[in-house]
């Protein structure tokens, strides 16, 4: 068995490497066909031909494409994503600054999404065709159909501007800025660690709306998938066996059925988390959240290709990593997947 698992691990590693390679190839191609000439951006369009040629050589653009690609690969693998033309910093350090904000948003959202989505999905499966089932169907249908940025604007209007229940756009009120030394970049964690509870609660009040919004979308997805997995499981014979031997209904549902449904659910949760990292792009724009999504869109408008591609690469890599992670856990938990 361990040998088989090891072989699977190696095959996953190969898939990962190949997919990342493809990711890099696509970003490289995008960077080369972009109509902005990076040389002109550097020396200006009035530069004499020899200066232009020197700058071109300096950027390595006079080399054949395959050599450029190898240099690009080497740079990326050594953590060099180039420099942002707007902030002047290395893209990697920019991303290191903005990514925690996105991570904080997505992580709280996935926790809430799991916490609500799984019980709702179980309820919908147990009472199939009754009101909990209809409720989750309506809730998830709305979640699949509503534009996230619009719902965010409406939520801001109602809960911030009109009712004033929550904090507005941004991560903190201005008065609380720069109090807590950033350590993890997750404001709630940093503030709690420093014992600055004012800052903590302010950060929470700013988190509530965007987290609720993102959590809603992951809840819709997780709930719907939980429902369909649970219906599959509850129809199987081992459930009848469990009931016959006298297990309580709660034990049958939560231990037996959900225990087995949990295996495919891991994939769903990982996928949902990956979508949250992406869905943050629009949400962050609406909530003026200084995360990776805002960084990429801002860079886009400034024609800062190094930043756009660096950001794309990081999100793409997290996507791939989460996919692979879920397949690994799946293979580890599900004996049938191990057998293949």
């Amino acid at each position: 068995m361990p040998a088989r698992f090891l072989r699977r691990l190696i095959s996953f590693a190969l898939t990962l490497a190949l997919t990342l390679f493809g990711l890099l190839a696509v970003t490289f191609v995008i960077a080369r066909v972009v109509p902005i000439d990076p040389v002109i951006a550097l020396v200006g369009d009035k530069a004499p031909a020899d200066v232009y040629a020197a700058a071109r050589a300096h950027l390595g653009l006079d080399l054949p494409l395959w050599q450029q690609f190898i240099i690009y690969l080497r740079d990326v693998l050594s953590g060099n994503l180039g420099s942002s033309s707007t902030t002047g910093n290395p893209v990697l350090s920019d991303i290191a600054h903005t990514f925690p904000a996105t991570l904080e948003l997505a992580t709280y959202a996935i926790i809430v999404g799991i916490g609500l989505g799984i019980p709702l999905g179980v309820a919908a499966a147990v009472w199939q065709g009754r009101w909990p089932d209809h409720l989750i169907r309506v809730v998830s249908l709305f979640g699949y159909s509503v534009p996230v940025f619009w719902l965010g604007l409406v939520a801001l209007l109602v809960f911030y501007a009109r009712l004033d229940w929550v904090g507005g756009p941004g991560r903190l009120d201005i008065a609380y800025d720069y109090i807590v030394e950033p350590w993890s970049g997750l404001l709630t964690v940093d503030a709690a660690a420093a014992g600055e509870w004012d800052v903590f609660w302010n950060a929470v009040s700013h988190l509530v709306l965007p987290v609720a919004l993102l959590a809603y979308f992951s809840m819709a997805y997780i709930g719907r998938m939980t429902r369909s997995f649970m219906i599959d499981e509850l129809g199987k014979e081992y459930i009848t066996t469990a009931r016959v031997k006298g297990a309580s209904e709660a034990r049958v549902i939560w231990r037996h059925a959900l225990g087995n449904a949990a295996v495919p659910l891991i994939t769903v949760v990982a996928l949902s988390y990956a979508y949250l990292l992406e869905g943050a792009v629009l949400t962050e724009t609406v909530f003026a959240w200084p995360g990776l999504g805002s960084y990429i869109t801002q860079a886009l408008f400034d024609a800062d290709m190094a930043a756009v591609l660096g950001g794309t690469l990081v999100v793409g890599a997290s996507f791939v990593a989460l996919n692979i992670f879920s397949e690994l856990v799946y293979a580890w938990l599900d004996p049938r997947a191990r057998m293949k």
Binding site: L23, A274, E278, T312, V315, G316
Partner: peptide, 9 residues
């Protein structure tokens, strides 16, 4: 493996 919106962006 690409996130759709980001790739479209």
């Amino acid at each position: 493996a690409f996130p759709r919106l980001i790739l479209a962006l």
